[in-house]
Design a binder for these strands. Structure first.
Lengths: 144, 144
DNA sequence: CTATATTGGTTCGTTAATAGGACCATTCTA
DNA sequence: TAGAATGGTCCTATTAACGAACCAATATAG
């Protein structure tokens, strides 16, 4: 074993496995067309709607990319664009009922992963892991 | 604070920051055309060459994708395809001198990140983080 | 109060990444 | 030795991503 992979690579491996499982659960629930990039954008939408540029920021993609992703999500019925009452230029991207049916599925699978990881590591190591990751956000999370 | 992000998402955030920095260092060293996907493939190449299908496996992409990536890397002068002496069907993808100039740059930046993270967390928390991530590989790493 | 700058989004055009399917050559195996 | 499996490639299509140019609405300078 004695593998000595970079810490960031080990994070990548684990997070990719999680993403893959969550997306699998989403697909299994019948939401076949949703892709990873689209899901990433969906996650950034607040309950009362979010501007496209904010969404782009959160997902760390260009505005044009966010536009394209929202286009697809809109065509598939997961979001709608409504005018921002406070600013005539802006529009708010809002989740539809269709999307609201989707979120619990994703959250449940995420829960399941979290539980399995905790079982595998034991409570202290899991707590330590989360603690370290939270601390790392201070130096790695450009948003917040 | 009290954020309660999923563990896997926090991993994603940190690993993305690291990838972004390593790629930045690579670009800053003059290797402008190399992309993330290409770098990911490069990392899987052993010193004495590696088969394309193994590469595809390691990077978790389809053979066709690996073919396309190797095409680009080959055109840019980072790898070469040589016949596998032991198997007439196979060809070995090997790093060129150009690529060998690149790897230390990536490794150095990775080192720097590792050091900064350790400083930010302190030695025990960093050790605990690595330990937990190594353990998680047992349930999340499809390769090994 | 107008002229200009900024902001929020979209459109156009291009490139990278990815994979399904078909396919060929070589090697393995029953 | 015939048929299955393996290693790669080609063709094609879709998604993701972004620079550049652009329009409409708002904010700001003079």
């Amino acid at each position: 074993m004695a593998d000595e992979l970079p810490t960031s690579l080990m994070m990548f491996i684990a997070s990719r496995a999680a993403v893959s499982r969550v997306l699998g659960a989403i697909h299994a629930a019948g939401h076949d067309e949703v892709t990873i990039a689209q899901a990433r954008l969906l996650m950034g939408i607040d309950e009362d709607g979010t501007r496209l540029s904010v969404l782009a920021d959160r997902a760390q993609v260009a505005k044009q990319t966010a536009t394209a992703l929202v286009d697809k999500l809109e065509r598939a019925g997961y979001v709608e664009r409504v005018r921002d009452p406070g600013d005539g230029r802006a529009r708010l991207v809002r989740l539809t009922g269709h999307a609201h049916a989707l979120l619990p599925v994703a959250r449940a699978e995420e829960e399941r992963i979290e539980t399995e990881w905790a079982e595998h590591l034991g409570p202290e190591r899991m707590a330590g892991l989360r603690d370290a990751l939270e601390a790392l956000r201070e130096v790695t999370d450009p948003y917040r």
